[in-house]
Design a protein around this nucleic acid. Structure first.
Lengths: 207, 207
DNA sequence: TTATATACGGAACATTGTTCCGTTTTGGCA
DNA sequence: TGCCAAAACGGAACAATGTTCCGTATATAA
């Protein structure tokens, strides 16, 4: 059932419900919580205590559990938000850079997302049902974002056309996973290599 | 400091310590604990409460922490024991079967190990320092075990000679990881396929 | 047999996820 | 504007679990 308030029967006898708008304080709490959670997760990891997040948000624990029935739901919400932010970066980059550059820049944005969210992989494999929808959501949001950039770059003749967006997402994720153990900017070099590989054999094939 | 008991100064003034053997009850507790932990981990996962393991071992929690300062140390000890058991299976199989068969049988033994210990992968990536030595231990024990089988089979002309033991261990581990989502005996089929691949091109090349 | 280091058991403590409920706030309405 | 009911809030209290502490029991050397 969705949020609702007063209800009455219309002239055909059907019950009509007029949704009551979300209260201002509720929205404030939710925003503060998501922001605080992101901050705490980034600095202390996704295992940080709920109390710590609530305190940082200036909110009681009861409020946390009002918005997120389980701790894992809060974690999932933060991850979804980060996925959204990463996906939304694609059109923003597309209007400000040439297609090939936009693609390369977004790949690094994506890499940054992967780097900070290494807790994501652990969470996904924890088996908690609260995370079940995340892999799907991940692909639903990021695949179209990358595909658009890829298509634009291909149309401009700046990259080759035989790579699928989802394959590229997975490949970079794998690159970054093992790059985590290596040096700090190892991931950056590997991704650069990959992007250069995309450019290779486009309009300007090598000798 | 190691286990020790009475100590006295020798004629040069150096303190000499005579190690006292491990007490019988201590060894009993340790064995019972490891056995109980393996059982509980297998049925309830590696997140099972320490109290449950202690109860199953017929031991107090204090005794658990006497042998394993941290919960994670107990988990690591159980994993090490399982790694040992898997490694020790190699020579046992080698004396009872033809080299090629021993290799195939051990690969399934290894697969079974991977299947039941999926909690291992999660534990390894948890970042807990208690698990730091496990990957090294894993390779140190299993690589020689497999290499011996591989060499024997190669010498007998039953498998090709261009595969390294560690690569094979990693490949099968990866096969089993994604096979976990598929059907139940998917892993078995994939591993069979891989072993047949090893046999291919040995003494009896295809047309 | 006795002394003593060693080991044991389990109550008690600390941390953290979750629930409960009395209090406060918000927004529609008279 | 003032009132009221629904919604939201805060935080104490509860439950589960890792960890510590210490009085008691036991094994081993002499």
């Amino acid at each position: 059932m969705s949020t609702e308030a007063s209800s009455q029967d219309d002239d055909a006898g059907r019950t009509v419900t007029k949704p009551r708008p979300v209260r201002a304080d509720a929205k404030r709490s939710l925003d503060a919580l998501l922001e605080a959670a992101l901050s705490v997760f980034t600095t202390s990891g996704v295992d940080a205590p709920v109390r710590e997040i609530a305190a940082k948000a200036g909110v009681g624990v009861g409020t946390v559990y009002r918005h997120f029935p389980q701790r894992a739901d809060l974690v999932a919400a933060v991850f979804r938000r980060e996925i959204d932010a990463c996906a939304d970066a694609a059109p923003a980059l597309a209007v400000e850079h040439k297609p090939g550059d936009a693609l390369a820049l977004w790949m690094h944005r994506y890499t940054a997302f992967l780097a900070t969210k290494r807790g994501l992989a652990t969470a996904l494999h924890s088996g908690d049902p609260a995370f079940d929808s995340l892999p799907t959501y991940f692909m639903q949001r990021l695949e179209p974002a990358l595909r658009t950039l890829l298509d634009a770059a291909a149309t401009a003749g700046e990259v080759r056309t035989d790579i699928a967006a989802d394959d590229l997402l997975g490949a970079v994720a794998n690159l970054c996973r093992q790059a985590y153990e290596k040096g700090p900017d190892h991931a950056r070099r590997m991704v650069d290599l990959l992007v250069d590989g995309l450019r290779y054999g486009a309009s300007t094939p090598a000798s």
